[in-house]
Amino acid sequence: MSRPLALTIRTLFLGLSLLTTAAAAAERANDKVRPPEGIEIGMSTNEIAITSDFTGADLTIFGTLTNVDDYLQQIGQYDIIVTLEGPRVDTTIRRKERVFGIWINTEQMTFSAVPQSYSMTSTRVIKDITTQQELASLNVGIDHIRLFAANYFGDIAALDDFRQAFRRQMLGSGLYQTNPGGIRFVSPSLFRATLKLPADVPNGVHMVHAYLFKSGDFVMETKLPLRVVKTGIEQSLTEAAYGNSFLYGLSAVIIALSIGWAGSVIFRKD
């Protein structure tokens, strides 16, 4: 009776030890092919309606990191950059020069497909997150937005002056802005990003980009479209002015004629 029992116990031990070794091996193998980290973002809406009295607001974006290494996360090796790029248009910039005492636009340059607005937030100041080269190759950050001057074959130094002036003016107008430190981790894998929308945020399809970095290396990027729709009477007027311009002009004239005429009737003394 005792032998089979002893045997059973031995077999059990053997089995157990085998199991543990297998588990450990599996864990090691798992570690080697550990799936890479991922990033996903979400918004409560993919369309925001902006009324005419809009004076700027914060846009909150939630996101998760998948397959996070808890240890690396604890020592702050994960960084995230979130940007909101406005619709792209060709943008011309002009430079004045003094000619015979007066200031005249003498030179101009057109950059193709430049975002009309750009808002960026990150876990840290972006130059601490990764290298300039990496940021440049990803076109992340106001300094790295691609400003490509089509049909310009002149002086490179002048091109640089124009680019700098463009960035300076867009920053000054608030259309381009950064909010370093606007990303907070709610849990090791859940984060919240706060982007600022400028008061004159352009109409159209914007794109939210989220970039994940691990220990300074770019891991992945994800994006989500966001439609900005301006509402209210001013927007209808803008649409009329560009879409139905003849009728718009006709109404302007009729309004002018009626106000002028009404004034003379109301204030008539005889």
Binding site: V89, T92, R98, I102, Q169, Y242
Partner: peptide, 18 residues
């Protein structure tokens, strides 16, 4: 205004209208 030095000699012209 024509003679005074402008605050910024560069000016941006937004290209198209959406």
């Amino acid at each position: 205004d024509l003679v005074l030095t402008p605050k910024d000699i560069y000016s941006i012209v937004t290209g198209g209208h959406t």
